[in-house]
């Protein structure tokens, strides 16, 4: 089966600044793939390139079903089966929780299916169900994160693109989010998880890519990377003697 996301040798430049150079990433159906790296490593540029928000000067990106993403304008990306959980949540603050979910389902042409899915999402997140008619802007950070994920789920995607979901959350909530990622994956969702929290990201993913200064410096099964001394020291903060 073709991968749900296939990024091939992509360069992203902003004017003279090279943000991403020759990065390739594959997410197969049913995988959790992590992309880790520090600030400025180029992770968000990759996200933007996939979502069509930033042009890429070379390389190809293929989406769900092998569709060539280059010809797809930003507002049609969601319809191809990729849903974004943006960094910093970015919920529609002036709209209610329910309306946020309805916006998630904007591309679902069959209204009944959209409504059903929204109810399922509300059932899954009782916290959101209790606040269904509250403005999203007054929710706490953790609640907004759940809403952002719920909104993406409402789009009934094949692939979730999660951009730093743990950022700015209290440790307890961070755990909740990572458990949710695993739960969603068990249900069959493909996930590209962009994270600064390298340890947990590696622990819950099948494979991972490590980005530094716009370039891939390591990739492979997450278990291997967890035990890789270079990665460990740089990103996991511990010394590992190779076995």
């Amino acid at each position: 089966m073709t991968p749900d996301l296939d990024i091939k040798h992509v360069d992203v430049t902003y004017g003279h600044v090279v943000a991403v150079k020759d990065v390739s990433t594959v997410v197969n159906r049913g995988e959790v793939v992590a992309m880790i790296g520090g600030n400025g490593a180029g992770k968000s540029s990759i996200v933007r390139a996939v979502m069509g928000m930033t042009p890429y000067s070379s390389g190809e990106i293929y989406g769900v079903g092998g569709i060539n993403m280059k010809s797809i304008p930003p507002h049609r990306v969601c319809g191809t089966g990729i849903a974004l959980v943006p960094s910093e949540r970015q919920v529609f603050a002036s709209m209610t929780v329910r309306e946020n979910l309805e916006m998630g389902a904007y591309t679902i042409s069959e209204r009944a299916s959209a409504e059903r899915e929204i109810e399922v999402i509300l059932e899954r997140f009782p916290v959101l169900a209790q606040r269904a008619n509250h403005l999203a802007g007054i929710l706490s950070g953790g609640q907004q994160q759940l809403l952002a994920i719920g909104r993406a789920l409402a789009a009934q995607p094949k692939l979730l693109l999660m951009d730093e979901p743990s950022l700015g959350l209290a440790p307890v909530l961070v755990e909740e989010v990572f458990e949710l990622v695993q739960e969603l994956n068990r249900e069959g969702m493909s996930i590209l998880l962009i994270e600064q929290n390298a340890k947990r990201a590696l622990e819950i993913s099948h494979r991972a890519y490590v980005l530094r200064a716009g370039e891939l410096i390591a990739e492979g099964p997450s278990d291997d990377l967890l035990n890789d001394p270079v990665v460990a020291e740089a990103y996991l903060g511990r010394l590992v003697t190779s076995n």
């Binding site: 928000m53 930003p74 507002h75 969601c78 002036s94 709209m95 916006m103």
Partner: peptide, 24 residues
């Protein structure tokens, strides 16, 4: 209406609205 929501979402956060299919 759905369209009205799209307008409000665009006013709220344009790029995210586009990410969910709104023709901004």
């Amino acid at each position: 209406t759905r369209f009205g929501r799209a307008i409000r979402a665009t006013a709220d956060r344009e790029h995210i609205a586009a990410a969910f299919g709104v023709n901004v």
